Amino acid sequence: MNFPIYYTMSGYRFTIFILIIGSVSPIFSQNHWDDYIAEKNIGNTYQVFGDNVNLRDSSNLNGKVIKKLSLGNQIKILTKTNQILEQNSVKEHWYKVQAGDETGYLWGGLIADYSFPLEDLTILCKNLGIKSGKLELKILRDSKLVSQGSFEVGPMSNETWNHTIYNAKLFSPSPKVLFAIKFLIFSEIEYGYSNEQVFILNQDLKILPQFSWNPGACDPPACAETWLVFPKETLPEDQKLGRKQYKGKDNTIIELMHSFDIDEPNQHDYYQTEYKWNGIRFQKKEN
């Protein structure tokens, strides 16, 4: 079976790695991201994150209501205004948008930051702002809300979003869906790092967070990379990297981190973490 490689690091191993690169990297002042305001991309299409949302004729709460928008409605960002509103710790710009045949103004806090289809569902993602450090998800089916939840992930940027849908049938009893959302987290050491948060949907469509992975990084001379081994997969031996062969285990995701120093080609350290599926969640086991 061809083996897919994912470059990731577990949370606690990433902490170790940060301590390593801290000796060779300048440390920014604490909370250098405090003034960051998440922004939407001009010209892109997004989905409405709220329900019964007012599309207005001006960029403020006193603007006349042109149209009511529903959860999941599509809108296109035309321009960003200089008007900023903060509500419930979410601080965002107002935008001029196209909603069907109407053009008007909508506050960014009512617009999903990222969305994607998943089987017969749609996943809406919302960055709840630097102050809260939370990610909110809403699950739609036929434009109807079927599940939602907010999860602490840290101070998020809107610069990078992506997702991965994994094969839930590799695990027994299978969750309905196994997926991950990738986003950028601000860091004290560097500008930021990508974080991938894994979720499952159970048979009742409840969102259950599992574990997060942080992509490998390199701040010479210290570097790290990680491979994931799923059931029925094999990570081949690599003598150059000093890595032995790893075979997937039933109902388990193996995470193997490789840390190395580019100035010391014979120095290779490996750390293994296992996530064992118990039918409800992936339980972490460190070796």
Score class of each variant (00 low, 15 high):
Gly154Phe: 00
Ser143Thr: 11
Val177Gly: 01
Arg141Gly: 07
Leu170Met: 09
Ser172Phe: 06
Asn251Leu: 11
Ser150Ala: 06
Thr234Leu: 10
Phe151Trp: 01
Ile254Leu: 15
Arg243Pro: 00
Lys206Pro: 09
Ala224Lys: 00
Ile200His: 00
Cys218Asp: 12
Asn214Trp: 05
Lys244Trp: 00
Glu159Ala: 14
Ile185Val: 12
Gln239Met: 09
Glu237Val: 11
Glu233Met: 12
Val146Gly: 07
Ile200Asn: 03
Pro173Ala: 03
Ser150Thr: 00
Val153Tyr: 01
Val146Asp: 02
Leu241Ser: 06
Pro155Trp: 00
Lys169Thr: 14
Gln203Ile: 09
Ala180Phe: 00
Gln245Cys: 08
Ser174Lys: 08
Tyr246Gln: 10
Pro221His: 10
Ser147Leu: 08
Ala168Leu: 05
Lys182Asn: 12
Tyr166Gly: 05
Leu228Cys: 11
Leu184Gly: 13
Lys169Val: 06
Lys176Trp: 10
Pro220Thr: 12
Gln245Asp: 05
Pro175Val: 00
Ala180Asn: 05
Ile254Val: 13
Asp204Val: 02
Ser157Gly: 14
Leu235Ile: 04
Leu140Thr: 05
Tyr191Asn: 13
Tyr166Thr: 05
Ile200Met: 01
Ile200Ser: 01
Asn251Asp: 15
Pro173Ser: 04
Leu228Phe: 01
Gly248Phe: 08
Ile181Gly: 01
Met156His: 05
Tyr166Asn: 10
Gln239Arg: 04
Ile200Lys: 04
Val146Tyr: 04
Cys223Gly: 05
Thr160Gly: 09
Phe211Tyr: 14
Met156Gly: 08
Lys249Ile: 15
Asn195Trp: 04
Gln148Lys: 12
Ser212Tyr: 02
Leu201Gly: 04
Thr164Phe: 08
Pro220Cys: 13
Cys223Met: 11
Glu237Tyr: 01
Tyr166Lys: 07
Gln239Ile: 13
Pro215Gly: 09
Asp238Gln: 07
Ser172Val: 12
Ala222Leu: 09
Gln245Arg: 15
Asn202Cys: 02
Glu225Arg: 07
Val198Ala: 04
Gly242Thr: 10
Val146Leu: 13
Gly216Lys: 01
Leu201Pro: 02
Trp227Cys: 03
Asp204Tyr: 03
Ala224Met: 13
Asn167Glu: 14
Trp213Asn: 13
Lys232Asp: 15
Lys247Gly: 09
Leu140Asn: 04
Lys244Glu: 14
Pro221Cys: 14
Ile189Phe: 12
Phe186Ala: 08
Ala168Asp: 13
Ser212Arg: 04
Gln197Met: 09
Thr234Tyr: 11
Asp204Gly: 06
Arg243Thr: 09
Leu235Cys: 09
Trp213Tyr: 11
Phe186Arg: 07
Ile189Asn: 10
Gly149Arg: 03
Lys247Pro: 06
Val198Glu: 05
Pro220Asp: 13
Val153Ala: 02
Pro173His: 01
Pro220Trp: 02
Asn162His: 10
Ser150Gln: 08
Ile200Leu: 03
Ile254Trp: 01
Leu241Arg: 06
Gln148Thr: 02
Phe186Lys: 03
Asn167Phe: 06
Leu178Ser: 01
Ile207Leu: 15
